[in-house]
Nucleic acid binder design. Structure first.
Length: 179
DNA sequence: ACGATGATGAAC
DNA sequence: TTCATCATCGTA
């Protein structure tokens, strides 16, 4: 399996966010922490795409927090919500175009706060490239998910974003139980 | 249904 | 410096 694994970097993430989303389902989030390595198939994500997306943090412009999203693709954007939970995103698209994909769930762990808690991910990874040297990266392990097993819905927890809250920017792998 | 809990951004 | 808000979750 190591032979089929390909580490995904800037050439994969540095494209338009929605096409990247369609391909990111079924890829693996790999964590190495205290010499232990674990891999998790990505099953649920959300797109936050550009300065006009009212749900995107960068809608208010470039700030200390959001500057990561204005940087290079293939870098993690990690922040704290509600004073309690870290959210893990991967930056997409061109430099200076603020966009990222929130990883909301992996196989066996549903919920963005639970993913970061289980994988011991916090703000120390903010602004870091997704490469093994940083202990967290993303691999293509050769699994191809057919489009018919990917469902799209509006994003969660962004009702304040009005018309942008309705856009089908959430991508979920349909569970075998639901087929 | 609700409270926990702290960083962030904007107002003053 | 103060204040409202927030890409959530566990307990009730």
């Amino acid at each position: 399996m190591a032979a089929l694994a390909k580490i995904l970097k800037k050439d994969f993430f540095g494209r338009k966010t929605l096409p990247v989303c369609k391909e990111l389902i079924g890829k693996f989030l790999v964590r190495r922490y205290k010499e232990k390595e674990s891999a998790w198939m990505i099953t649920e994500i959300e797109a936050y795409d550009g300065p006009h997306d009212k749900a995107c943090h960068a809608f208010k412009g470039k700030t200390d927090r959001t500057k990561t999203m204005f940087g290079d693709a293939g870098v993690f954007y990690v922040y704290l919500v509600y004073g309690l939970y870290h959210m893990l995103n991967i930056v997409t698209d061109k430099k200076d175009y603020p966009s990222a994909i929130l990883i909301r769930g992996v196989e066996g762990i549903t919920g963005p706060g639970r993913v970061t808690k289980h994988l011991k991910i916090d703000k120390k990874l903010n602004g870091k490239k997704a490469i093994p040297a940083n202990g967290l990266w993303i691999e293509d392990r050769g699994i191809k998910i057919s489009k018919k097993y990917i469902k799209r819905t509006p994003r969660i927890g962004v009702n304040y974003a009005k018309e942008w809250a309705e856009k089908p920017y959430r991508f979920i792998l349909i569970d075998k139980k639901n087929q």
